[in-house]
Amino acid sequence: MICGKRYWEYSSSTTTYIRMMAVSDSVIGSRLPSSQGRTLKEKTRYILISVASLVLFIVIWDLASRTGIISAKKLPVPSKLFETFLYKLTNKNPDGNTLGIHIWTSLQEALIGFFFGITIGVPLGISMAWFRKFDKLFSPLFDLIKPIPPVGWVPIMITFFGIGIMSKVSVIFIASFIPAVINSYSGIKQTRDVHTWVAQTFGASRSQVLFTVAIPSAAPMIFTGARVALNGSWVSLVAAELIASTKGLGYMIQTARLVGRIDVVFVGVLVIGVFGAILMEGLSYLERRFVKGGRR
């Protein structure tokens, strides 16, 4: 991310970033977009191709499993997945809970851990960047913990807290705490000197500079941290539930695997994907609401 960003700053500032192919014909760094009419027509064509590609994908999938080229034990028919999804909404087989309960459990664990990770991690990162002694005291320790993947904490947390909700929450706490600290730390460190000077010449005190200049200018970075944290939370949640739990989406797919219900595994995996995407989308929405002046 850093490397890419630098390149951005280097490359020219005024050119509109238009996709390669649209560019190759006519508009090159021009402020006046030409051939709009044609690109619109092109757009609909590409959308049609996308739809066709998706339909083809599902048809091939369907045929492959219906004709038995790939055994239905390994690849259930798409329509069967929909049936299973509806069935799982109300039925507790094979893992003892309905889909709704699993989703609720997972979301609860992920969001609680994420919330604490962010609310503790961000202020810690900011104070590490702002107070030199704090930085020197905690940085080495933090550098030690930082490279350990959150999944590695799962067994320890299970030993401490058992297989209930606490062990997951604490793993997710670590998974989101670390990127929250790193990003808010480097966000504050990257405050432009000029901005600080402007504030100082207006007579701002050190704490005013922190709250009116440093934190707002670090906000995009902090949100990037939150995004990494949320992603990490969701991944380690699934891992933790796969390894040891009694509820949750990870547990659901693990149990389904053990009893050989591949349709339930498929549904679970897709639901995990969908909810991961929904969470990320929610965060992006918050970011658009709160970060003004655009990212980067």
Binding site: K74, V151, W234, V235, V238, A239, L242, G250, I253, Q254, A256, R257, G260, I262, V265, F266, G268, V269, L270, I272, G273, V274, G276, A277, M280
Partner: peptide, 15 residues
């Protein structure tokens, strides 16, 4: 495929 975490593939991969 994109939003599915790599780890969630474990049960499918085993099957």
């Amino acid at each position: 495929v994109r939003p599915i975490p790599g780890i969630a593939w474990i049960p499918l991969a085993i099957l």
